[in-house]
């Protein structure tokens, strides 16, 4: 096991934190999608990092690449839904997107 790269770990935590924090406070659906993207980036860095820590750089990176593919699909769907939401609700404000509750 090589030395643990603390800076990189800190980066993962900070990026993840920013993503999660945004998800918790923003009321804008587009920003939610962006926050999801930031969140996934944290996951990817973590995977690459994990590969580096245990010396399997290839595996870590190939996993990260697969995640990029999957994540792109999700992002596309999320944005497509956001467009439809804007079209049918007339807004992307989460406070207005609360018909389903209770």
């Amino acid at each position: 096991m090589t030395t643990i790269p603390y800076i990189d770990m800190l980066t993962v935590m900070i990026v993840f934190g920013i993503g999660l924090y945004t998800l918790l406070i923003t009321r804008n659906l587009i920003k939610v999608v962006i926050a999801l993207q930031i969140l996934v980036k944290a996951g990817m860095i973590a995977l690459v990092l994990a590969g580096r820590i245990n010396g399997q750089v290839m595996t870590g990176q190939s996993i990260a690449l697969t995640v990029i593919v999957a994540d792109t699909i999700v992002a596309v769907i999320a944005l497509a839904l956001a467009v439809q939401v804007k079209k049918h609700h007339g807004t992307v404000d989460l406070d207005k997107l609360r018909n389903l509750k209770g």
């Binding site: 993962v12 993840f16 993503g19 999660l20 998800l23 659906l29 939610v32 999801l36 969140l39 996934v40 944290a42 996951g43 990817m44 973590a46 995977l47 990092l49 994990a50 996993i63 995640v67 999700v74 769907i77 999320a78 839904l81 956001a82 439809q84 939401v85 049918h88 609700h89 997107l97 018909n99 389903l100």
Partner: peptide, 24 residues
């Protein structure tokens, strides 16, 4: 649409939790 968006965001967030778990 509202249900779909909420489902997607919550599920995708969970999915990132899993990724972090896998990385660890």
């Amino acid at each position: 649409l509202e249900a779909g968006v909420k489902y997607l965001v919550q599920s995708a967030t969970g999915s990132v939790f899993i990724l972090l778990g896998i990385a660890l």
